[in-house]
Amino acid sequence: MAESGKIDPMHQFVIQPMFGTGDLSVGGYNIAFTNSSLWMVVTAVVLWIFVAGGMKRSLVPGRWQMSVEFFTGFINKLLTDNVGDNGKKYMPYVFSLFMFILIGNILGMLPLGLLGVHPFTFTSHFTVTGALAILSFLIVLVVGFWKHGFHFFSLFVPHGTPLPMIPVIFPIELVSFMVRPFSLGLRLFVAMTAGHVLLKVLAGFVINSTNAGAGYGALVGIPSFTLMIGINALELLVACIQAYVFALLTSVYINDAENLH
Protein backbone atom coordinates (compact mmCIF):
# COMPACT_ATOMS: atom_id res chain seq x y z
CA MET A 1 0.00 0.00 0.00
CA ALA A 2 2.59 2.53 1.10
CA GLU A 3 4.85 1.47 -1.76
CA SER A 4 2.21 2.29 -4.30
CA GLY A 5 1.54 5.64 -2.61
CA LYS A 6 -2.01 4.55 -1.93
CA ILE A 7 -3.20 4.75 1.64
CA ASP A 8 -6.23 2.66 2.47
CA PRO A 9 -8.32 4.57 5.03
CA MET A 10 -10.26 1.39 5.81
CA HIS A 11 -7.21 -0.61 6.80
CA GLN A 12 -7.51 0.64 10.39
CA PHE A 13 -10.75 -1.32 10.79
CA VAL A 14 -9.30 -4.67 9.77
CA ILE A 15 -9.55 -7.27 12.49
CA GLN A 16 -6.45 -9.41 12.88
CA PRO A 17 -6.03 -12.38 15.19
CA MET A 18 -3.21 -11.96 17.65
CA PHE A 19 -0.81 -14.28 19.45
CA GLY A 20 -1.60 -17.08 16.97
CA THR A 21 -5.12 -17.58 18.27
CA GLY A 22 -6.69 -17.33 14.82
CA ASP A 23 -8.14 -20.82 15.02
CA LEU A 24 -9.33 -20.68 18.61
CA SER A 25 -12.93 -21.79 18.67
CA VAL A 26 -15.66 -22.93 21.01
CA GLY A 27 -18.51 -25.10 19.80
CA GLY A 28 -17.62 -24.38 16.21
CA TYR A 29 -17.61 -20.62 16.75
CA ASN A 30 -14.36 -18.79 16.21
CA ILE A 31 -13.27 -16.83 19.29
CA ALA A 32 -9.84 -15.68 18.15
CA PHE A 33 -8.22 -13.08 20.38
CA THR A 34 -8.00 -10.21 17.90
CA ASN A 35 -6.72 -6.66 18.02
CA SER A 36 -10.34 -5.71 18.65
CA SER A 37 -10.49 -8.03 21.66
CA LEU A 38 -7.19 -6.64 22.89
CA TRP A 39 -8.58 -3.11 22.98
CA MET A 40 -11.72 -4.28 24.74
CA VAL A 41 -9.48 -5.80 27.40
CA VAL A 42 -7.39 -2.63 27.55
CA THR A 43 -10.57 -0.58 27.92
CA ALA A 44 -11.80 -2.80 30.73
CA VAL A 45 -8.45 -2.56 32.50
CA VAL A 46 -8.19 1.22 32.10
CA LEU A 47 -11.75 1.58 33.35
CA TRP A 48 -10.97 -0.67 36.32
CA ILE A 49 -7.86 1.36 37.18
CA PHE A 50 -9.82 4.59 36.87
CA VAL A 51 -12.68 3.48 39.10
CA ALA A 52 -10.40 1.67 41.58
CA GLY A 53 -8.48 4.93 42.02
CA GLY A 54 -11.68 6.54 43.24
CA MET A 55 -12.45 3.87 45.84
CA LYS A 56 -10.80 5.62 48.77
CA ARG A 57 -14.29 6.55 49.95
CA SER A 58 -12.99 9.48 51.94
CA LEU A 59 -15.36 12.14 53.18
CA VAL A 60 -13.35 14.89 51.54
CA PRO A 61 -12.52 13.52 48.07
CA GLY A 62 -9.20 13.96 46.36
CA ARG A 63 -8.92 14.82 42.69
CA TRP A 64 -9.11 11.24 41.47
CA GLN A 65 -12.03 10.30 43.68
CA MET A 66 -13.69 13.54 42.66
CA SER A 67 -13.44 12.70 38.95
CA VAL A 68 -14.78 9.17 39.46
CA GLU A 69 -17.63 10.59 41.50
CA PHE A 70 -18.25 13.09 38.74
CA PHE A 71 -18.96 10.23 36.33
CA THR A 72 -21.10 8.22 38.75
CA GLY A 73 -22.97 11.41 39.64
CA PHE A 74 -23.42 12.17 35.95
CA ILE A 75 -24.99 8.77 35.25
CA ASN A 76 -26.99 8.96 38.45
CA LYS A 77 -28.44 12.29 37.36
CA LEU A 78 -29.06 10.97 33.85
CA LEU A 79 -31.09 8.09 35.25
CA THR A 80 -32.90 10.19 37.83
CA ASP A 81 -33.87 12.76 35.21
CA ASN A 82 -35.03 10.22 32.65
CA VAL A 83 -36.38 7.33 34.68
CA GLY A 84 -36.94 8.80 38.14
CA ASP A 85 -36.02 7.19 41.43
CA ASN A 86 -36.77 3.76 39.96
CA GLY A 87 -33.86 4.31 37.60
CA LYS A 88 -31.17 4.03 40.28
CA LYS A 89 -31.12 0.24 40.04
CA TYR A 90 -29.94 0.51 36.42
CA MET A 91 -26.94 2.53 37.49
CA PRO A 92 -24.43 -0.37 37.31
CA TYR A 93 -25.49 -1.23 33.76
CA VAL A 94 -25.71 2.29 32.35
CA PHE A 95 -22.48 3.34 34.07
CA SER A 96 -20.62 0.32 32.68
CA LEU A 97 -22.11 0.95 29.24
CA PHE A 98 -21.25 4.64 29.19
CA MET A 99 -17.72 4.27 30.53
CA PHE A 100 -16.94 1.23 28.36
CA ILE A 101 -17.99 3.06 25.19
CA LEU A 102 -16.39 6.35 26.24
CA ILE A 103 -13.02 4.85 27.09
CA GLY A 104 -13.16 2.59 24.01
CA ASN A 105 -13.81 5.66 21.82
CA ILE A 106 -11.06 7.73 23.40
CA LEU A 107 -8.46 4.96 23.48
CA GLY A 108 -9.06 4.42 19.76
CA MET A 109 -8.19 8.05 19.14
CA LEU A 110 -4.94 8.17 21.09
CA PRO A 111 -1.88 8.85 18.91
CA LEU A 112 -0.29 5.60 20.06
CA GLY A 113 0.72 4.95 16.46
CA LEU A 114 3.72 7.19 17.19
CA LEU A 115 4.93 4.52 19.61
CA GLY A 116 4.41 1.73 17.09
CA VAL A 117 1.19 0.50 18.73
CA HIS A 118 -1.89 0.40 16.55
CA PRO A 119 -4.95 1.57 18.38
CA PHE A 120 -8.17 -0.09 17.37
CA THR A 121 -11.57 1.45 17.93
CA PHE A 122 -13.84 -1.49 18.63
CA THR A 123 -16.85 0.84 18.72
CA SER A 124 -16.38 1.34 14.97
CA HIS A 125 -17.62 -2.23 14.41
CA PHE A 126 -21.34 -2.81 14.31
CA THR A 127 -20.87 -6.32 15.60
CA VAL A 128 -19.85 -4.67 18.86
CA THR A 129 -22.19 -1.68 18.90
CA GLY A 130 -25.02 -3.87 17.65
CA ALA A 131 -24.44 -6.40 20.42
CA LEU A 132 -24.46 -3.62 23.02
CA ALA A 133 -27.62 -2.15 21.49
CA ILE A 134 -29.35 -5.54 21.52
CA LEU A 135 -28.29 -5.95 25.14
CA SER A 136 -29.96 -2.64 26.04
CA PHE A 137 -32.99 -3.56 23.99
CA LEU A 138 -33.29 -6.94 25.69
CA ILE A 139 -33.14 -5.31 29.09
CA VAL A 140 -35.99 -3.02 28.05
CA LEU A 141 -38.03 -5.99 26.79
CA VAL A 142 -37.39 -8.10 29.88
CA VAL A 143 -38.13 -5.28 32.29
CA GLY A 144 -41.20 -4.23 30.31
CA PHE A 145 -42.78 -7.66 30.16
CA TRP A 146 -41.67 -8.54 33.70
CA LYS A 147 -43.25 -5.47 35.20
CA HIS A 148 -46.29 -5.01 32.99
CA GLY A 149 -46.90 -8.35 31.28
CA PHE A 150 -48.93 -8.08 28.09
CA HIS A 151 -49.97 -4.61 29.16
CA PHE A 152 -46.53 -3.61 27.90
CA PHE A 153 -48.02 -3.65 24.39
CA SER A 154 -49.93 -0.49 25.33
CA LEU A 155 -46.57 1.22 24.79
CA PHE A 156 -47.45 1.05 21.09
CA VAL A 157 -50.69 2.95 21.59
CA PRO A 158 -49.80 6.50 22.62
CA HIS A 159 -51.95 8.15 25.21
CA GLY A 160 -55.16 9.65 23.83
CA THR A 161 -55.13 7.81 20.50
CA PRO A 162 -58.66 7.73 19.04
CA LEU A 163 -60.02 4.18 18.82
CA PRO A 164 -60.27 4.04 14.98
CA MET A 165 -56.64 5.12 14.72
CA ILE A 166 -55.28 2.25 16.83
CA PRO A 167 -54.95 -0.30 13.98
CA VAL A 168 -52.86 2.23 12.06
CA ILE A 169 -50.84 3.63 14.95
CA PHE A 170 -50.01 0.27 16.50
CA PRO A 171 -47.90 -1.11 13.60
CA ILE A 172 -46.14 2.22 13.18
CA GLU A 173 -45.21 2.37 16.84
CA LEU A 174 -44.23 -1.29 16.79
CA VAL A 175 -41.88 -0.72 13.87
CA SER A 176 -40.39 2.36 15.49
CA PHE A 177 -39.84 0.31 18.63
CA MET A 178 -38.24 -2.60 16.79
CA VAL A 179 -35.91 -0.24 14.91
CA ARG A 180 -34.46 1.07 18.17
CA PRO A 181 -31.60 -1.43 18.55
CA PHE A 182 -30.52 -0.82 14.96
CA SER A 183 -30.57 2.96 15.27
CA LEU A 184 -28.83 2.72 18.63
CA GLY A 185 -26.05 0.48 17.36
CA LEU A 186 -25.64 2.06 13.94
CA ARG A 187 -25.41 5.60 15.28
CA LEU A 188 -22.31 4.85 17.32
CA PHE A 189 -20.72 2.66 14.64
CA VAL A 190 -21.28 5.27 11.90
CA ALA A 191 -20.05 8.20 13.99
CA MET A 192 -16.84 6.44 14.96
CA THR A 193 -16.17 4.98 11.51
CA ALA A 194 -16.82 8.26 9.69
CA GLY A 195 -14.55 10.24 11.98
CA HIS A 196 -11.68 7.79 11.71
CA VAL A 197 -12.02 7.52 7.93
CA LEU A 198 -12.03 11.29 7.59
CA LEU A 199 -8.87 11.59 9.68
CA LYS A 200 -7.13 8.86 7.68
CA VAL A 201 -8.14 10.43 4.35
CA LEU A 202 -6.75 13.79 5.44
CA ALA A 203 -3.59 12.12 6.74
CA GLY A 204 -3.30 10.46 3.32
CA PHE A 205 -3.53 13.91 1.70
CA VAL A 206 -0.69 15.17 3.86
CA ILE A 207 1.57 12.22 3.04
CA ASN A 208 0.79 11.94 -0.66
CA SER A 209 1.00 15.68 -1.35
CA THR A 210 4.31 15.97 0.47
CA ASN A 211 5.66 12.99 -1.47
CA ALA A 212 4.69 14.80 -4.68
CA GLY A 213 6.90 17.77 -3.83
CA ALA A 214 7.42 20.54 -1.27
CA GLY A 215 5.10 22.92 -3.17
CA TYR A 216 2.21 20.46 -3.15
CA GLY A 217 2.99 19.69 0.46
CA ALA A 218 2.66 23.36 1.41
CA LEU A 219 -0.41 23.86 -0.76
CA VAL A 220 -2.35 20.74 0.22
CA GLY A 221 -0.56 19.19 3.19
CA ILE A 222 -0.55 22.16 5.55
CA PRO A 223 -4.27 23.01 5.17
CA SER A 224 -5.12 19.31 5.50
CA PHE A 225 -3.02 19.03 8.62
CA THR A 226 -4.66 22.12 10.13
CA LEU A 227 -8.05 20.65 9.35
CA MET A 228 -6.97 17.38 10.98
CA ILE A 229 -6.19 19.15 14.24
CA GLY A 230 -9.65 20.69 14.28
CA ILE A 231 -11.33 17.43 13.35
CA ASN A 232 -9.38 15.61 16.03
CA ALA A 233 -10.84 17.97 18.61
CA LEU A 234 -14.26 17.45 17.09
CA GLU A 235 -13.78 13.68 17.19
CA LEU A 236 -12.89 13.84 20.89
CA LEU A 237 -16.18 15.66 21.37
CA VAL A 238 -17.99 13.08 19.26
CA ALA A 239 -16.41 10.27 21.28
CA CYS A 240 -17.95 11.73 24.44
CA ILE A 241 -21.26 12.68 22.83
CA GLN A 242 -21.81 9.26 21.26
CA ALA A 243 -21.15 7.51 24.56
CA TYR A 244 -23.56 9.95 26.19
CA VAL A 245 -26.19 9.45 23.47
CA PHE A 246 -25.95 5.68 23.85
CA ALA A 247 -26.41 5.91 27.62
CA LEU A 248 -29.12 8.56 27.29
CA LEU A 249 -31.18 6.59 24.77
CA THR A 250 -30.75 3.45 26.84
CA SER A 251 -32.14 5.24 29.87
CA VAL A 252 -34.97 6.75 27.81
CA TYR A 253 -35.89 3.27 26.59
CA ILE A 254 -35.64 1.90 30.13
CA ASN A 255 -38.01 4.67 31.17
CA ASP A 256 -40.57 3.34 28.67
CA ALA A 257 -40.39 -0.06 30.26
CA GLU A 258 -40.18 1.15 33.84
CA ASN A 259 -42.85 3.84 33.75
CA LEU A 260 -45.33 2.62 31.18
CA HIS A 261 -47.92 5.32 30.55
Binding site: V26, Y29, F33, S96
Partner: peptide
Protein backbone atom coordinates in the same frame (compact mmCIF):
# COMPACT_ATOMS: atom_id res chain seq x y z
CA UNK B 1 -18.42 -14.70 16.93
CA UNK B 2 -15.05 -13.59 18.25
CA UNK B 3 -16.21 -9.97 18.50
CA UNK B 4 -19.36 -10.88 20.40
CA UNK B 5 -17.56 -13.40 22.62
CA UNK B 6 -14.85 -10.99 23.70
CA UNK B 7 -17.33 -8.14 24.04
CA UNK B 8 -19.56 -10.17 26.34
CA UNK B 9 -16.52 -11.33 28.30
CA UNK B 10 -14.96 -7.90 28.79
CA UNK B 11 -18.20 -5.98 29.15
CA UNK B 12 -19.53 -8.66 31.45
CA UNK B 13 -16.46 -8.33 33.65
CA UNK B 14 -16.83 -4.56 33.61
CA UNK B 15 -20.49 -4.88 34.55
Amino acid sequence: SSQIFWLLLTFGLVF
